[in-house]
Each structure stands twice: as structure tokens, then as C-alpha cells.
Nucleic acid binder design. Structure first.
Length: 412
DNA sequence: TCTGGGGTCCTAGGACCC
DNA sequence: TCTGGGGTCCTAGGACCC
């Protein structure tokens, strides 16, 4: 067997949302900008490098950002701009290889192994891509080139903004030896703490650790951890079109203020159910499991409960009824800060009309409502009980985990 | 004046069936 | 009247990513 050394690229847009905004509005260029969500208790989703230089960070409350950096310009995010730009950027990637795996709205992996004979080198491809993205969108990106996805991602993180970092196979051992474990994608805060308690601080130490010790502590993950420490990763770059089925569709919202009035809570629940339902219908999926999530006013206490139905559903009021059933089975302990509804156990919706006239009417009414909302923006038409709430759901910043084409394919 | 929102994967334990 | 064990489905909760 001939093992071909792979050449993997990881591309990370620098301060993506903020860069797109600075590009769209020249007055923002060169100035500290923070992109935020559209409603009350929002946080900073992304900030420009000018803002970061002052200490502004993702996840900060807006008032905190303003305190650290009084000249900070707050921009309410516009998801259409970001999704559109992201899709076009991924199209550029596909000019260099069909093996493009979007990891989030602003990151992708490319397997360029088979493209090298055409373009010469990965470095050449990286410079071509950088130039096109800069020329077309005025955005810089950081690119990592390495023998696998784990190391490519690590490499793209090493130089920001506008970086290009190559980790060649010969460099791997030297780089991993002193690298702190938390730098690896997949080792978060908790895992870091556990490993440190085992006196494992660097990837070198992790890679040399006895596998039995790791599996005793972490189970099946232990094997993968050891390999990660050695800089090994076999996972393939999976093109978007070949990705597996989507597993769930959900929405959650932190309320403008904590609420305890049951009627008000139900209104928000209906609103979330409508958001989930309309998205499921647009993607032509339905699901059997409805999950309700509640975060209380103290921020730390929360619970989630789910029910699994006999039938797959995707109509908003059916989702609402199931979620409400869960809510009413619980005695709320505090006023509510956040509500979330998600639909799981998904399958493709069969494209057939219901047998009964009443159900057919409901389906057609739903489709008409969805169509209007698709065309004129969300919540142009909605359930009567939602109308007073409409203003509260302003523009929404889509999270970085968003996928360019919106949803993965769903098996029949 | 604290602290967003979208996902995925894994584990453990119980119910139920054969 | 007592017994084992495997498989599947479900719920709850935690960790991770952006």
C-alpha cells in the first residue's frame, strides 16, 4: 500500500462579521467595531482588530465593551450579508479543489493533495486564495497548511491576521513538544483541567502518556487524545454535499427581561415554535422529538426536557403544543431568562397531501404564510397572539456555526 | 449594567421486548 | 416460581466547537 502524504489547508476569515461590515461601510474602516445581536441582552459576536487591540472580546456584554473602549462602534449584525459572503468565498475555494469542508461560517478545510500537480504548491494556492478574497471582499484570512485537519487548524491560528503558516511533517514533533494542550481543537476548559490534574500540560506529554491511563479516565476518547498529542489525525475532509444528515433544528432566545407571567412565557414559546417550524418546513424536514430548554433568572440554573412523539411533525402549532406540554409538566422555580425549542429525530418530509380537508387547509395556509415570510422577511405574517412581541425579535446575528447552504442534507 | 445562539457527539441509566 | 442477557429506544446531562 502506498501512503500518500496529505496536504490539508485550513482557512479562517479574520474577524469575519466585523470585516464584512467595515467593507460595506467605509466609515467603519480602521476603527474599533463590534458586531452584536439585535435585541436587549446581547453580547459582542465579533469585533474588529482595532477593537481587539483595546481589549474588546467576543462574548462581552456591550456595555463592558463600551467601558473598555469608549469609541467602540456598535453594529447590529446582518446575517444575509455574512451568509452571502461566506457562500461566495467557499465557491472560490472550490476552484482549487472539490474537497472543501466548511467548519463554520468563517472557516473551511481544503484537501489540496490532488491539486498540487496543477497549481504547483499549497503555498501558491494559499496566496491565490488570499488575493482573490482580498480583492473581491476586502477581507483578510489566516491560512494553515499541514498534513492533517488538526494541525492545519492549529497552523491557521498561529498567525493572525492575514497569516500563512506551514507545518511540514518534519516539524510536527518539535512543534507539539512544548505546545500547551488547550491549543488543540477538541480540548476545552474541562478537558484541560482533567489533563492537568494528571500532570499533562503539553502535547508532548499527552502524546507520550500511557494510553491505558487515558482510556481509564476518558473512555474511548483516550485513544484519540493520545494521537492528538502526537499531532496525528486521520479524519478526512468531507465535502459539504457528502456530509451526513442534519440531526436537529432549534432556536433559543434570551428574553429582553426575565419573565414569570405564564401567558407571556407561552407567547414566547409559540414564537420560538414558529421559528423552528418554519425553518423545518423550509428544509422539508419533520421531527419526532421536541426539546424544551429553560434558563432561569439567576443564569446558572436551567433544565431541559424532551418528549418523543409517535409521528413526525413540523407544523408550528404542533411543535408548540408538544413544547407547552413539557412546560406545563414542570413547576417553574424562578422567572425565566431564556427559552429554547428544538426539533430532533428528523426525517425528510413525505411530499403528500393530508387526507382530510381540514388538514389540507391548514397545510396550505401554513405554506402561504411561509412563502410571504420568505419573501418579505421573517414574522411579516404570524399568529395573532404574537403580534405584540414582533418588535422584540429584531435583526438576528447568526452564530458562527451556521453552514453556508443552511442545512445539511437529510436522508429519506 | 453582567454573561448569545446554533449545533454535534458521548455516556449513563431505565423501560421494554425477546 | 426463578432465572440471564442482549438489543433498542428513550431521557438527561455534559463537553466541545464556532
Amino acid at each position: 500500500m502506498i501512503v500518500v502524504e496529505r496536504v490539508i489547508m485550513h482557512i479562517d476569515m479574520n474577524a469575519f462579521f466585523a470585516s464584512v461590515e467595515q467593507q460595506a461601510n467605509p466609515e467603519l474602516r480602521g476603527r474599533p467595531v463590534a458586531v452584536v445581536g439585535g435585541h436587549g441582552r446581547t453580547v459582542i459576536t465579533t469585533s474588529s482588530y482595532e477593537a481587539r487591540a483595546k481589549g474588546v472580546k467576543t462574548g462581552m456584554a456591550v456595555w463592558e465593551g463600551k467601558r473598555i473602549c469608549p469609541e467602540l462602534i456598535i453594529v447590529v449584525g446582518d446575517n444575509r450579508k455574512y451568509t452571502h459572503t461566506s457562500s461566495r468565498i467557499n465557491e472560490i475555494f472550490r476552484d482549487y479543489t472539490p474537497e472543501v469542508e466548511p467548519f463554520s461560517i468563517d472557516e473551511s478545510w481544503l484537501d489540496v493533495t490532488a491539486s498540487l500537480s496543477i497549481f504547483g504548491s499549497a503555498e501558491t494556492i494559499a496566496y491565490l486564495i488570499k488575493a482573490r478574497i482580498r480583492n473581491l471582499f476586502g477581507i483578510t484570512c489566516s491560512i494553515g497548511i499541514a498534513p492533517n485537519k488538526l494541525l492545519a487548524k492549529l497552523a491557521s491560528d498561529m498567525q493572525k491576521p492575514d497569516g500563512l503558516t506551514i507545518i511540514s511533517p518534519a516539524d510536527v514533533a518539535r512543534i507539539m513538544e512544548r505546545l500547551p494542550i488547550k491549543e488543540l481543537c477538541g480540548i476545552g476548559r474541562k478537558m484541560e483541567r482533567h489533563l492537568k490534574m494528571m500532570s499533562i500540560y503539553t502535547c508532548g506529554e499527552l502524546g507520550r502518556c500511557d494510553e491505558a491511563r487515558l482510556t481509564a479516565k476518558f473512555g474511548i476518547v483516550g485513544q484519540r487524545l493520545k494521537r492528538m498529542g502526537q499531532g496525528l489525525d486521520d479524519s478526512p475532509v468531507i465535502p459539504f454535499a457528502e456530509e451526513g444528515d442534519v440531526k436537529s433544528v432549534g432556536h433559543s432566545r434570551t428574553l429582553e427581561r426575565d419573565i414569570s407571567d405564564p401567558a407571556e412565557i407561552r407567547r414566547f414559546l409559540l414564537q420560538l415554535s414558529e421559528m423552528v417550524g418554519s425553518r423545518a418546513r423550509r428544509y422539508n424536514v419533520s421531527g419526532r422529538t421536541i426539546h424544551l430548554y429553560v434558563r432561569y433568572a439567576d443564569f446558572v440554573s436551567s433544565w431541559g426536557k424532551q418528549v418523543t412523539l409517535k409521528n413526525h411533525i413540523n407544523l408550528s402549532d404542533e411543535i408548540y403544543r408538544a413544547a407547552l406540554g413539557i412546560l406545563e409538566s414542570v413547576e417553574l422555580e424562578q422567572s425565566v431568562r431564556l427559552l429554547g425549542v428544538s426539533l430532533g429525530n428528523l426525517k425528510h418530509q413525505a411530499a403528500q397531501l393530508p387526507l382530510f380537508e381540514e388538514e389540507r387547509k391548514k397545510l396550505f395556509a401554513t405554506r402561504a404564510m411561509d412563502a410571504i415570510n420568505d419573501r418579505f422577511g421573517r414574522m411579516s405574517v404570524t399568529f395573532g397572539t404574537l403580534l405584540p412581541e414582533k418588535e422584540k425579535f429584531g435583526s438576528q446575528v447568526i452564530p458562527p456555526s451556521w453552514r453556508p447552504e443552511g442545512i445539511k442534507k437529510v436522508g429519506a
